[in-house]
Amino acid sequence: MAYENIRSDFSNGITTITINRPSKLNALNKATIEELHHALDDANQSKETKVIIVTGSGEKAFVAGADISEFADFNVEEGGRLAAKGQELLFDFVENLSTPVIAAVNGFALGGGLELAMACHFRLASSNAKMGLPEVSLGVIPGYGGTQRLPQLVGKGRAMEMVMTAGMIDANQALNYGLVNHVVETDELLPLAEKIASKIMRNSSVAIAEAISAVNANYKDGVDGYQTEIEAFGNCFGTEDFKEGTTAFLEKRKADFPGR
C-alpha cells in the first residue's frame, strides 16, 4: 500500500513506522490515522516483523497533536464518533497488538500524539521531547484514551494536574513520572529503540504476545487479569517455542525460537 502521510520501513526484524507530515508537525488527521492502522496491521501480520517502532519525521515533533481544522465545527454526535472511531482504528488497536510496539518520542508529543505514545507498549524519548495533553485549553478533553492511560502510567494526581493545567512536561520529568523508560540525545533515540528491539527479538514472539495480553488484562474492566495470566501461561505449554526454549535451556545452548 502506498502511503502519503507515513513511511513504513522494514529491516532486520523491525518495522519502523514514521509519521511524515513535517509541515504540520506530524499532526494526526483522519487520513494519517487510517494509514497508521493499515501499516500497523500489516506489520503485525508479517511473520518477519518481530518489533514495531513508531516515531515522527524530523527532530521537532513525534506528533504535535490532532489536526484541529478537521473537527473544529463538529457537533456532539460527530465528536463522539470521532473519538470512538479513532480509538478503534488506532489507539486501542495499537495497545492490543500482539507484536511489541515501541514509541520513539522525538520532540513534541501533544494531545493525540501523547495518546498515541501512551497506547504503545512502552516509550523512549529524546532529550528535547515535550509532552502534554492541552485539550482543555481548547474547550475539550482528551478523546483518544488520554484520561485513562495517563493515570495508569503516572498516577491519578499527576495525570489530573497535567490534564487540568494543559501544560507540558519535559523529557526528564516524563522519565521521573514513569511516562517514558529512557531519555537519550536525539541522534541516539532510534539506535536505542533498535537495541532494545534486538533484545526483545531474542525471545519467544509467541510468549511475548501472551504476555502483552496478560498485562493489558489488568487494565480492563470486568476482566480478571490473574485468570488471563493463568490461561496465557497454560497456552505457552502447547507451543513449539516452549519446547525449543526449555530444551535449549536444558541443553545449555541458545534457543532458536520458531515463533509457533
Results as ranks from 00 to 15, higher is better:
Val63Leu: 01
Ala248Arg: 13
Arg149Ser: 04
Gly234Glu: 14
Arg21Ile: 03
Met160Ile: 07
Leu179Gln: 07
Asn75Met: 01
Asn12Met: 04
Arg21Lys: 13
Glu210Cys: 05
Ile6Glu: 09
Glu185Ala: 06
Thr186Asn: 13
Gly222Phe: 03
Gly143Gln: 08
Phe91Asp: 06
Asn181Met: 11
Arg158Gly: 02
Ala207Ser: 14
Leu138Gly: 11
Gln152Glu: 13
Asn5Val: 00
Gly259His: 08
Phe122Val: 02
Asp187Ile: 01
Leu190Gln: 12
Ile102Ser: 12
Gly139Val: 03
Glu95Cys: 03
Lys252Asn: 12
Glu35Phe: 00
Gly146Asn: 06
Asn20Met: 02
Lys47Leu: 04
Phe62Leu: 04
Leu114Gly: 05
Tyr144Ala: 05
Val206Ser: 15
Ala103Cys: 05
Ser204Ile: 02
Gln227Val: 01
Glu95Thr: 09
Phe249Met: 13
Asn128Tyr: 05
Ser69Gly: 09
Val51Trp: 05
His38Lys: 15
Lys24Tyr: 06
Tyr144Arg: 07
Phe62Glu: 06
Asn29Val: 01
Val223Pro: 08
Glu77Ser: 10
Gly155Tyr: 04
Asn12Thr: 02
Glu48Tyr: 06
Gly86Gln: 08
Ala103Glu: 08
Gly234Pro: 08
Ala27Arg: 15
Leu97Gly: 07
Leu25Gln: 14
Glu244Pro: 09
Gly145Ser: 07
Ile208Cys: 11
Leu192Pro: 11
Phe108Val: 05
Val54Ala: 05
Ser23Trp: 07
Thr228Pro: 05
Ala109Leu: 00
Ala214Arg: 12
Leu82His: 13
Ala166Glu: 07
Ile17Val: 05
Phe122Tyr: 12
Arg123Phe: 00
Gly155Ser: 06
Ser204Asp: 10
Leu175Asp: 12
Ile19Ala: 08
Ala125His: 09
Phe74Lys: 12
Thr165Asp: 08
Gly132Gln: 01
Ala64Cys: 04
Ala125Trp: 03
Gly167Cys: 02
Ser213Trp: 08
Phe91Pro: 09
Val101Leu: 08
Ala193Glu: 05
Arg260Gly: 12
Ala217Leu: 00
Leu40Ala: 07
Leu138Arg: 15
Leu192Glu: 12
Ser137Cys: 01
Glu78Trp: 00
Ser126Ile: 00
Ala255Asp: 10
Gln87Ile: 02
Asp9Ala: 08
Arg149Trp: 01
Cys120Thr: 10
Thr49His: 07
Asp92Leu: 03
Lys156Trp: 01
Leu133Phe: 01
Gly245Asn: 09
Leu40Thr: 04
His37Arg: 13
Thr99Leu: 00
Leu190Tyr: 06
Ser198Thr: 09
Ile141Met: 10
Leu179Val: 00
Gly222Pro: 02
Glu188Ser: 11
Phe93Ser: 11
Lys85Gly: 02
Ala171Lys: 09
Ala207Pro: 11
Val101Gln: 12
Ala209Ser: 14
Asp170Gly: 11
Ser127Trp: 06
Gly132Asn: 02
Glu70Val: 02
Ser23Val: 04
Phe257Leu: 10
Ser57Gln: 14
Ala159Tyr: 02
Ile6Gly: 10
Ala84Asn: 13
Ser204Leu: 05
Asn235Gly: 10
Lys243Gln: 14
Ala197Thr: 06
Val140Phe: 06
His121Leu: 00
